[in-house]
Design a protein around this nucleic acid. Structure first.
Lengths: 233, 233
DNA sequence: TCGCGCCACATTGGATCCAATCAACATTTT
DNA sequence: AAAATGTTGATTGGATCCAATGTGGCGCGA
């Protein structure tokens, strides 16, 4: 079942097929399970148990742990084990503000370079997003949402910034998914995405930038509010 | 010799002593050697050789590799090994612009919160920087420079942003060190640091922010120019 | 002589085994 | 009875061993 992703075939990538080692595949699977909330913050991840579950030795698990630790998803204490890392609502808000900062800068660079193909691709993702929304698959919704932002900003051709953004998204993703279960943030997000795309088509930088900033920051505020009220964190 | 850092004793941290596992210590040592340019971009790192050198088995080396890979310092191809990752001048410039973006935002938050103690601490680091400069130890210069920026921005109390900044600095650090060998960028940097601190003392946000931005961006431009002229990258 | 394929070696990837450390429980002592 | 301490079980950390894969060299044939 999890084996299906031992090789990630990304069709849009130009023939650069990448093979995953077992530790990398494990890390991918564990990452997904953490983001889905199957492993709660603070929970201990035991090497032996996971090794048994994935039917491999403990060593690939250990290497996967190192990777996840570097990504900030888990923390490991020597001779004590690995624990799903936690993050405070304030820190989540800070990450959203960082995202706003970086994405606005990227959009500024991207808008002048956008082509018709870019708009079409973005529109396509939005369609997919809407389809997924009606079926309540928020695991896919989160990654599609990230994909939309990434695609929208890709004309800026700033790989390093995109990379950093990916890291930030990774940190907040699990809380976003949780919130989606509780609120109706989908719908406003869908509308805002459409409006954002309209502004970009019109090359209206003056409006698009603050709009994007607001889109991100209000999403952040809503999420943090939900976190603080639920007290489950 | 490298054993001296198996436990990192940071005296300013309040008694929170952290123990390093062998892989972590190895990663720290290898990271330093990469930043120092001992391992050139593209160069292959062989597990067996390093294991012999550090007198341990290959396994801790492999785990250290995973960590360094996640940090972006090396790339590993399955069944082919680990290679010191490279980075183009354009990407370096992008990272500097990202740094400018984030640091300016941080400074904006930091200035109103700065206390006398903060100014003193910064001034102290600047003194240390000057002392190190006269003795041409650029390995320490780089980390002290980062420490100054970190200390200057720490009143903002934005741990996540600082963390991201650390990652960005890691990427450009090795090129900064190389450039320092070639240019006289020390001196202007020292002056600019002093001036920046003066502006912060005066709480002159209007001047301090653009000044910091310029400080970072010109440093970036000079570095990139040096990179492109030397063609050693 | 050049090109293709096969084979051996070197290197990485993964599994098993042993040692070190921690935590919890039981025992003893005050 | 409470606290301190010893001891045992569980879990992680590290080393050695075996398997898989990639690379370079050699030979064979056109």
């Amino acid at each position: 079942m999890w084996r299906e992703m031992t090789t990630v075939g990304n069709p849009s990538e130009k023939h650069k097929l990448q093979r995953l080692s077992l530790p990398e595949a494990l890390a991918a699977s564990l990452r997904e399970r953490i983001l889905n909330g199957e492993f709660q913050p603070g929970e201990a991840l035991v090497q032996e148990a996971l090794a048994a579950e994935y039917e491999c030795s403990r060593m690939p698990v250990r290497e996967a742990f190192r990777q996840l630790e570097a990504e900030g998803l888990i923390e490991t204490k020597v001779h004590k084990g690995a624990f799903v890392s936690s993050i405070s609502p304030d820190e989540v808000m800070e990450l959203f503000e960082l995202r706003a900062l970086i994405e606005c800068d990227l959009l500024l660079h991207a808008i002048p370079k956008m082509t018709a193909a870019d708009f079409i691709a973005c529109q396509e993702i939005l369609g997919e997003l809407e389809r997924v929304y009606t079926e309540r698959e928020m695991a896919r919704w989160g990654s599609l949402n990230a994909a939309f932002h990434r695609r929208l900003l890709s004309p800026a051709e700033r790989g390093q910034s995109i990379l950093i953004l990916g890291g930030i998204n990774l940190q907040v993703e699990r809380f976003v998914r949780l919130q989606l279960l509780l609120t109706e943030a989908f719908e406003t997000a869908a509308l805002e995405h459409q409006q954002l795309l309209v502004l970009c088509r019109a090359r209206d930088v003056e409006q698009a930038i603050p709009y994007l900033r607001d889109h991100i920051l209000t999403a952040g505020r809503e999420l943090v509010a939900a976190m603080k009220s639920k007290r489950k964190f």
